[in-house]
Simulated scan of single mutants.
Amino acid sequence: MRRIDIIGIGFGIFAAGGLAYLILQAAGLNSLEAGIWSQVFLVGGLVGWLLTYLFRALTKNLTYNQQVKDYEDAVFQKRLEEMTSEELAQLQAEIEQEKGNG
């Protein structure tokens, strides 16, 4: 995500808080109650986002982890493609031997 995206999201959240405040005032709450409830919505949304982020971090389902895995898979595939048939046969024999011992 780029810096401009983060700035845009920040302004969007700020605008959503202001809009929630105005909607709550239009619904009949006084300015103090509308301010409190708009802050409750903001903090609740922030805590919800934080929990989803922590879940993705703990399950290693972040963009960075996926990029590293894709890179490692591509490097492994390239190495396999560059191996001769004799090297592939030797590798397969080693794998079969490890399966037999494991």
Rank of each mutant, 00 (worst) to 15 (best):
I13V: 15
E87Y: 01
Q39E: 09
Y64K: 10
Q25P: 02
D5W: 14
L50K: 07
G44F: 10
Y21M: 08
L91S: 14
L32F: 04
K78V: 02
I4F: 12
G45W: 00
E86N: 11
Q25H: 06
T52Y: 08
R2E: 13
F76M: 00
V43K: 07
D70R: 04
W49R: 01
F76C: 00
T52H: 10
I13E: 13
G48L: 05
A20F: 13
I6E: 05
E94L: 05
R56T: 08
S85C: 05
L54F: 03
L62N: 11
A34V: 00
L19D: 12
T84L: 05
L50H: 06
E96R: 07
A74Q: 01
G8M: 05
F11Y: 12
G35P: 07
V43G: 07
L80P: 11
T63V: 06
I36F: 11
R2D: 14
A27L: 14
G102P: 02
N101G: 03
F14R: 09
L80A: 15
G102S: 09
Y53M: 10
V43Y: 06
M1E: 11
E82W: 10
L88E: 02
L58N: 07
E81N: 04
W49E: 01
N65S: 13
Q92D: 14
Q92Y: 12
E94S: 07
Q67P: 01
